[in-house]
Simulated scan of single mutants.
Amino acid sequence: MSSASSDSRFPVEDKRLIAQNLDQIVNSDTYKLVQHDLDLINSPTMRGVKMLLEVGKPELRLEEAGITSTVIVLGGARIQERSEAELSLANHLNALAADPDSALLQRKVYQARRLVDLSCYYDDAREFAFLVSSHGQQKDKALDCGSSPVIVTGGGPGIMEAGNRGAFDAGCRSIGLNIDIPNEPPNPFITPDLCFKFNYLSLRKHHFIMRSVGAILFPGGFGTLDEMFEILTLRQVGVKSAMPIILFGSEYWSRIIDFEFMANSGLIDDEDRQLFQYADTAIEAWDLIREQF
């Protein structure tokens, strides 16, 4: 029987074109295994798949690392170590000296002075994280740092850096949950295989909460406030089990949020004010956390 290629009913086939077509087949996006098709995975259609992966990947890695409890450290990304804050102030003062009538530069100097004042919280966060991270070693020298609650931060600069740095000072592990936004690379003190990058803020917050046995919130901006109210809401409605929630810096927080006014207005219950506590020193905050162990 003659082959189809020699059948007079079909045109003579060009082997070169056939080879080209096969090459196009095996190199087409549709022929790729799904996990190798990055254009598909990164498309809006696959958003649900990416969200599931962002739930699963950190969960798997933290389970492999044997981490069962964490203490959340949150606060402003703009709060620097004092030496850095003073350098920033000096730079703004030099700029103002060159243009003393600039209202914008005057405002920058004022803000830089305030950030120098707030730099004390960097040291407090670092000390607090050191105390928490050292806890397992203090209980039993035979235990490694993984036996104690592990510090988890947003993985960026400022208070987040201070939290990871305190654990680093103690020779212990810490977690960084970074978000994929401009100008916020991971700080250099996170345990390398415990640093995760997220697309979705909601899933990042999910991983903050799920293993937490305590949270401490230092002065910060919109992101810190968002995270604070997320934690308080989950505690208020009973989704998250009881744990200490500490607002560090009573003067700052009492000016930012008037919880008493909220309660007096009937918008929260009087008992809701017991969901959190204030602290003004690292050892005071650590004692509040340690009470539950």
Rank of each mutant, 00 (worst) to 15 (best):
E84G: 11
M210Q: 12
G154R: 06
G249I: 04
L275T: 02
V150Q: 09
G76M: 03
T153V: 09
N264T: 12
A112E: 06
N183C: 00
R78E: 10
R47F: 13
S8I: 05
V132Q: 05
H92D: 12
E84N: 15
W253R: 04
V150C: 10
M51P: 01
A279N: 05
P182K: 07
I151W: 03
E184A: 07
S69D: 15
D99T: 10
N183G: 00
S5A: 14
P192V: 00
D101L: 13
L74R: 11
S3M: 13
F218K: 03
V12P: 00
R211S: 05
I41W: 05
N178V: 04
L217A: 06
S212M: 02
P188L: 00
R114Y: 11
V237K: 01
A4E: 10
I179Y: 01
S241V: 10
R235D: 02
H207P: 04
P157Q: 12
L118D: 07
Q80P: 03
M1K: 12
D269N: 14
L234S: 01
S202Q: 03
Y31G: 00
P157F: 09
D180T: 00
S28W: 08
A129K: 02
R9G: 08
N178F: 07
N164Y: 03
D193L: 00
S265R: 12
